[in-house]
Design a protein around this nucleic acid. Structure first.
Lengths: 358, 358
DNA sequence: CTGTTAGCGCTTTCAC
DNA sequence: GTGAAAGCGCTAACAG
C-alpha cells in the first residue's frame, strides 16, 4: 500500500491524479453511477484497491448525502425503563443484519447514567450523525422529541405510539386492545371487581392499559373503581406489595397482571399475604412473553411476542425506507393474543422483556 | 423554537448573525475557548439554547477535529468467535459509562453475517467516523489490520496481544502464563502425560496456550507429544469427542481444559465414552469464568475473570487517552489465578465468555 | 464521456 | 475582543 501523496490519507483528488482523470469521475465510480467508460472505471477501482482508498464519511455527510449510520436510542434512561440485555441485543442483532450487512454503522446514544436530560435522545439526528433512527422504548406522555424527529424528515421508527400523534412512525403491540380483551375475558367469566397491576405509568403503554381496562368495564356497565388500578414498578417486591393490598379487599375476584415483571412468585406471595388463594379465591390473567408457556398456568395474554413480531416487521420497513424502497411513516400495530388456558405449568425463569429488581 | 433563517437547520453563521457577531466568536463559545466577552458569550449561549443549535458533526470531522464517536469492532465474525451476548453488553455498558456520559457516541461495525472479508474491521477509523476504537476479540495470527490501526495514530485498544508486535495497545490476560502454570501444576502433582483441549487455533490466544504448555513440559524435561494438544471448537459435541479420543490413550492421566466452553457435562461424557472416571483415572484442570465456582470441583485457573479486570482497566486508560489525559499505547496484561481446590461443587450453567453450540 | 467549479458547516489562521 | 476568508473532502450542477 503506497503512502498518500500529501497529508495523512488518500483523497478523491489523489486517486484522480493517479488515474489521470478528474475528481468527478472518481466520485462517479465510488458511487456506482453510470457514465464512466469501463476501462476508466476499472483503472480507478484498481487504484482505489491498491491504495485502500476510504471516502471521508464527514465530508460526505457535509455535502448533504447523509451518513451510513442508523441510530439506536432510548427515550428514557435504562434506569427508568430497564429494557433487558436480551432484548437490547436482539435489537442490535436485527439492525446489524438489516444495516450492518450493507456496510452501514449502528450508532448508540443510550445514556445509562441518565446524565443528559430527557429530550435530546435524538441529537444524533440533529447533528447529522444518523441518517435514520430507532427509538426503542415506550414514549413518556409528555414527549415532544418524537414530533421533532417526525418533522425532521429522516427515516425513523418508534417502538411505541403517542396519543394525539397518529402519524408517528411506529411498530408496537396494541396495549389498549390487550387491556380491553383481558378485562372483557374476566368480565365474561362473571367477575365484577377486577384489579389491574399496571406498569408504565406516565408512559404511553401505561395510558393504553388504563384506557382498555376502563373501556371494557364501561361496555359491561360496571362502574370503574380507580383504587383497583395500581401502578407498579419493575421491582418484584412492589408487585408483591400491590397484590397484597389489592387482594385484602375480598370483593376483588380477579386480577390482570400487566406489570411487565412476569413473575408468578411475587404474585403468589402477595396473594398469600392477603390470605387469598389463586384459582380458588380469585383468578389471574397475566401478560406473557412466551409462546407456549407462562409464569402461571392461568389464562394469559401474549403481549411481548407480538411486540417482537411488530418490531421485526417495523425494522424491515424501516430498512426499506432508509434504503429508498418505500416512503414513511411506518405503522405496524399488532393485536395481542389471548390464551384461554396455558398448556404448561408454572416456569420459574421466563425470558423477560424488562429487567426486574428484587 | 424559531425556524432556521434559510435552509433546514441553524448553522454557526445563522447564530452569529442573530447575535450580531462573527462565526468565529460563536465557534469559540461552542468549543469553550477563551477570548470572548462574558456578555457576548451569554448572549450567544442564549440564542443557541433558544434555537436548539446543533453543530454538524460531519463538518467538524471534515475540518479535522475528529468526531465524538468511539468505535467497537470485532476482528472476526461472531460466527467464528461467538462472544456471548452477556459479554457484548458488558462491553457496551462500560463504553457507555466512559464515553456516553460525556456525550460521545458508540458506533458498531460488527458484521454478524460475516459478509465483509476479514481485514476491514477498522474502516470506521479510516473513514473518520471513529476518533478511537476498541477491537474486541482475539486477533487472528495473520492479522495485519491491528498494525495499521496502530500506525493511524488514534486511541485504540485491542483485547488481545499479537506476536511480533509488542507495541500493540492491548488489555488481556496472559494466556501463555495461564497455560504454563496450569501445566506446571499438573506436572508437580506427578503427571507426565498431560493433554490439552485448546481453543482459538489460528488466533493469538491459541498460540499462547500452546506455548505455555510446551514451555512447562520442556522445563520439566518431558518430551512434548503433539497429539496431546487438541484443537476444539465452541461446539460441546466437539469437546466430548476430543476428550473421548484423548482419554482412549490410558497413559494420559491429566487434562487441561482451556476450550473456553466451560462445560463439565461434555467433559464427563467424553471421559465416560473412553471408559475413564474423573478424579480416579485422571485429573482435570479447567479454565474458569467464575470467581468462586467452577464447572468441576477440581483445580481450576481463573482466566476470564482477570480478562474482565484487564478489559475494565484498559477501557479506563483508553478513555484517558481519548480525552487527552494520557498518551498511548496501553499495555494491560493480567496474570491468571490458579485455584488448588474449588469450594463449590459442579454447577450446570455458568456465565460464559463465549456462546457454545450443541 | 469527462473536466471545472461552487459550496456544504465548521475551525482557524491572519488581520483589524 | 472580533471579523474576513481559506480550506477540510466530497458531490452535483454546469460546461465542454
Amino acid at each position: 500500500m503506497r503512502e498518500p501523496p500529501n497529508g495523512k490519507h488518500w483523497t478523491i483528488y489523489d486517486v484522480a491524479r493517479e488515474a489521470g482523470v478528474s475528481a468527478k469521475t472518481v466520485s462517479q465510480v465510488l458511487n456506482q453511477k453510470e457514465g464512466v467508460a469501463d476501462k476508466t472505471r476499472a483503472r480507478i477501482l484498481a487504484i482505489m484497491e491498491e491504495v485502500d482508498y476510504q471516502p471521508h464519511i464527514g465530508a460526505r455527510a457535509l455535502r448533504g448525502g447523509g451518513t451510513a449510520c442508523i441510530g439506536l436510542t432510548l427515550p428514557v434512561s435504562l434506569d427508568v425503563v430497564p429494557i433487558s440485555e436480551e432484548v437490547l441485543l436482539w435489537l442490535f442483532g436485527r439492525l446489524l443484519k438489516l444495516f450492518g450487512s450493507r456496510g452501514e454503522y449502528i450508532c448508540f446514544d443510550i445514556n445509562p447514567g441518565g446524565n443528559s436530560a430527557n429530550g435530546d435522545y435524538a441529537r444524533g439526528l440533529w447533528q447529522q450523525l444518523y441518517r435514520g433512527c430507532v427509538v426503542a422504548g415506550p414514549l413518556p406522555l409528555d414527549d415532544t422529541t418524537a414530533r421533532r424527529i417526525h418533522d425532521w424528515g429522516a427515516p425513523y421508527l418508534v417502538l411505541s405510539r403517542l396519543d394525539g400523534f397518529p402519524e408517528l412512525s411506529c411498530a408496537t403491540v396494541d396495549f389498549e386492545q390487550g387491556a380491553y380483551e383481558s378485562t372483557k375475558f374476566l368480565i365474561e367469566r362473571g367477575h365484577k371487581r377486577i384489579a389491574m397491576l399496571k406498569a408504565f405509568t406516565g408512559f404511553q403503554p401505561g395510558l393504553e392499559r388504563r384506557r382498555g381496562f376502563l373501556r371494557a368495564l364501561e361496555e359491561a356497565g360496571i362502574a370503574p373503581d380507580e383504587s383497583l388500578i395500581r401502578a407498579v414498578s419493575f421491582d418484584f417486591h412492589d408487585v408483591t406489595r400491590c397484590v397484597h393490598r389489592l387482594l385484602m379487599d375480598t370483593s376483588v375476584t380477579a386480577l390482570i397482571d400487566c406489570s411487565a415483571t412476569e413473575d408468578g412468585v411475587s404474585l403468589r406471595n402477595g396473594a398469600r399475604r392477603a390470605g387469598r388463594t389463586l384459582g380458588k379465591d380469585f383468578d389471574v390473567l397475566t401478560w406473557s412473553y412466551r409462546e407456549d408457556e407462562a409464569v402461571l398456568a392461568e389464562a394469559c395474554a401474549q403481549m411481548w411476542l407480538p411486540q417482537f413480531d411488530a418490531t421485526g416487521e417495523g425494522f424491515d420497513e424501516l430498512s426499506a425506507w432508509f434504503h429508498g424502497d418505500r416512503e414513511g411513516p411506518i405503522h405496524v400495530v399488532y393485536r395481542p393474543t389471548l390464551l384461554d388456558k396455558v398448556p404448561e405449568t408454572e416456569i420459574s425463569q421466563p425470558r423477560r422483556m424488562f429487567d426486574s429488581r428484587g
